[in-house]
Structure formats: structure tokens, C-alpha cells
């Protein structure tokens, strides 16, 4: 019983982790049809923000929950204005330019902080015991944050004026522009918000994974698979894909070890794409967010 409970908890954490690292990418992809290849570096910058801030005496929670999204969000807006703006409608060039940005970020951070970091932050919140098994309290906290984040994105899209304009732009940008919506500004804001969510995720994961200039490549494979399997709908896509892929990954990893778990995740995604080339939300939950 305890084993089952702790296994279920582990799988739920795997799903939440997948949703957390993919959400920022999904927001940008869902809004602009742009796959941001610098997504991993946005996560990495979030992690570095937390490390630098805590080294300078800032409270860990403030650094993770406020500073990391703020810094990376501002960075995202700058990137959108300087780089992405010139490439709208040229998807392939956007991919390549964001890849260039990814290399640039890795290079910059390596030049400033060195190829490895000396400081690591230990995850706060101790351990939680379930019968004879223990689980990290911080992992439970991350599950909570992910759920809260998904609800927050839903509420923003559904209840605020900005969300309404963003949804309009997403559905038909020409029509939105004809009705007086500044689509360029909407794109700027969504790119900034997507970056901020990525920064938050990177900051939250920093205590678990540590930070390195090249840590982005650890996340991006999983994030890409999740977002592409999910399809265009930001929330429904990320959630369903995370549940499906994270669930399979968790079960296979429990049975055979983490290596095969990741391969299972990839195989499942490729088979999914053969059946549903436009992602899960291209076939099911079409009207969802």
C-alpha cells in the first residue's frame, strides 16, 4: 500500500515536472506558432537568477517566486523586440534565430560565471514520510506550484481583458488586428509571459538540479516532446500530453530504470504523432484553451 502510494506520488511528480518545464514553451508556441529553441536557456537563466540572488543574501523564496520570473520575463521582452519581431511569418528562420540565441546565452553565461558553478542550493522543506517510504517535501511543493500555475494561466486567458485579446489574436490575428488590437504588442506580452513562466520553472528546479550553462539541454528534449504531442492548445495540450507521457515514463522507469523510461517517452511521442500529426489537441479537445 505504502509502495503504491509513494509510486503514485512519484508519477504525479513526474507529470507535474513535465508540465512545469513545458508550460512556458507551450504559451509561446500556442500564441505565435513559434518553437523557441532557446527555451532551455530561459530555464537556465531562471536558475542562475536564483543562485546569484541567494548568494547576495536574498531570501530563497523571493528569489525563486519573484525574481526569477521577473528577470527572465524582462529578458524575453527584450529578445522579442530585438530578434523575434523581425521574423514573424518566417517560422524556420525563427527556429534558427532562437537556436542562435540559445548558443549566445550559453556563451554569455559561461563567460560570466564559468563553465561550472560552485554554489548549489539545497532543496528546502525537508522530507515527508509515507509509511516506510519517504518523499521530498519540496517535490510536493512543486506539484502544488504547477497546479497553481496552470490555474493562473487559465484564469488569465479566460477572465482578463488581456486574455481575451490574446485568445482573439491566437484564433485569427488578421481579424484581431482589423478590430484594432495591437497584435505586435500582444505578441510581445505573450513572449514575455512565456519567458517569465520558463524563468519561474528554471528557478524552482534549480535547487533540485543545480545550475550549469548547458543545463538547458537536459530539459528541452522533454519539453519539445510534450508541447508537440500536446498540440496548439496551451493548457489542454500541455496537461494531456504531460499526463500521458509523464505517466508512461514514470511506469516504465519504475519497471526498468530511467534510461528506458526516456526512450519509452520518445517512442510514444513518435507513434502519437503518426496517429495525430497535429498533436492530441489537434484531434481531441479542439475548442479548449
Amino acid at each position: 500500500m505504502d509502495l503504491v502510494l509513494s509510486l503514485i506520488l512519484q508519477i504525479i511528480y513526474g507529470i507535474a515536472n513535465l508540465a512545469l518545464i513545458s508550460l512556458g514553451l507551450a504559451i509561446i508556441f500556442g500564441m505565435m506558432r513559434v518553437i523557441n529553441l532557446a527555451h532551455g536557456e530561459f530555464l537556465m537563466l531562471g536558475g542562475y537568477t536564483v543562485v546569484v540572488a541567494t548568494n547576495n543574501g536574498v531570501n530563497l523564496w523571493v528569489a525563486m517566486l519573484i525574481l526569477a520570473p521577473l528577470v527572465v520575463g524582462v529578458f524575453g521582452v527584450i529578445v522579442e523586440r530585438l530578434l523575434i519581431r523581425w521574423l514573424y511569418g518566417r517560422m524556420v528562420d525563427t527556429l534558427l534565430a532562437t537556436w542562435g540565441l540559445s548558443l549566445l546565452c550559453i556563451g554569455l553565461v559561461t563567460s560570466i560565471f564559468g563553465a561550472s558553478t560552485t554554489t548549489t542550493i539545497s532543496p528546502p522543506l525537508g522530507v515527508v514520510t509515507i509509511g516506510e517510504y519517504t518523499s521530498s517535501g519540496y517535490e510536493l511543493f512543486l506539484i502544488g506550484v504547477t497546479v497553481a500555475l496552470l490555474i493562473a494561466v487559465y484564469a488569465t486567458l479566460k477572465l482578463t481583458k488581456l486574455g481575451l485579446l490574446a485568445r482573439g489574436t491566437m484564433q485569427n490575428s488578421d481579424m484581431a488586428a482589423a478590430l484594432g488590437v495591437s497584435t505586435s504588442r500582444i505578441y510581445m506580452i505573450t513572449f514575455g509571459l512565456g519567458a517569465a513562466v520558463s524563468g519561474l520553472a528554471g528557478g524552482l528546479l534549480a535547487p533540485i538540479t543545480g545550475v550549469l550553462p548547458t543545463i538547458g539541454s537536459v530539459y528541452i528534449a522533454k519539453a519539445f516532446i510534450t508541447v508537440i504531442s500536446g498540440g496548439m492548445a496551451i493548457l489542454a495540450g500541455t496537461t494531456t500530453a504531460s499526463i500521458l507521457l509523464g505517466g508512461v515514463n514514470g511506469i516504465v522507469a519504475f519497471l526498468t530504470g530511467p534510461t528506458i523510461g526516456e526512450v519509452a517517452l520518445l517512442l510514444l511521442a513518435i507513434i502519437l504523432l503518426r496517429l495525430m500529426p497535429r498533436g492530441i489537441t489537434g484531434r481531441f479537445f479542439k475548442k479548449s484553451l
Binding site: L83, W86, L87, D93, L96, A97, W99, G100, L101, S102, L103, L104, C105, I106, G107, L108, T110, S111
Partner: peptide, 20 residues
Amino acid sequence: WLNTNLVLGVILIGFVLLVP
């Protein structure tokens, strides 16, 4: 003093924007 990734990133962005 100059990181390789940095230079490669600048080359890639520069070519995409200026010499596609």
C-alpha cells in the same frame, strides 16, 4: 577571453537576419 558558443550564436543570428 571570447567564448566559442557566443561567437557561434552571433554567427547564426547574423546569418539568419542578414545573409539568409
